[in-house]
Amino acid sequence: MDFSSRLIEEAVNQIARLPGIGKKTALRLVLHLVREKEELTLQLTEALNRLRTQIRFCKTCHNISDDEECAICRGPKRDRNVICVVEDVRDVMAIENTAQYNGLYHVLGGVISPVNGIGPADLNIESLVARLQSGQSTVNEVILALSPTLEGDTTAFYVHKRIQPTNVRVSVIARGVPVGGDLEYADEITLGRSILSRTQFS
C-alpha cells in the first residue's frame, strides 16, 4: 500500500501489528483518528499507556489485576477451599460470567505444547503447587477447567501428576452435548463421551 504521508504509514504499520487487524482496517482506524478531535487520540493513547505501565498480574493466581493481588483473591466472600485452574485470563472472565462459581482461580498462562516450544516450565504450575503446599492453604479441591484439546488434556494430566503429592482432590469440568444443541449435530466423539459419562436423571 502506498501512503502519501510518512506519519500515516507509521501509524498504520503499528496498528496492523495487532491480532486480527490488517492494513486496510488499520488505515480506516488511523484516518478516523485524524478526522476526529485530537482529544480522542490523546485519551486513547493515555489509556493504553496506563494499561501497559500499570497493569499487573496477581501475585497469587496470575489473573489480570490493578493491584498486587486481584479482586477475586482478596474477595471476602470467595470460597477459599477450591481453586479452578484455567488456561488464560479470558477463561476466568468466562467462568465468572456464569455466576456458578465462587472459589478462587489459578491462571496457567497457556497450555503445554512442545511443538510450539511451550514446556511445563513456561507455565505457572510451580506457583500452584506452592499455593497448595503453603501453611495457610485451606484448599481441598482443584478443578481443572482446560480446553478438551490434546494440549489441554496434556496440561491437565501434567498438573494432576504434579499436585498429586498434596492429596488435594482433583476434578475436571464435565464434557458433553451443549445446552440447546441438537443431538444429531453433536460430533461423534463428544456424543460418545456423553453416553459413557452419563449422569443420574434428576
Binding site: P114, G119, P120, F157, Y158, K161
Partner: peptide, 9 residues
C-alpha cells in the same frame, strides 16, 4: 526435558 511431562505423554 521435564520427566513428569514425558510421563504425562
Amino acid at each position: 526435558p521435564d520427566t513428569l511431562a514425558l510421563e504425562s505423554y
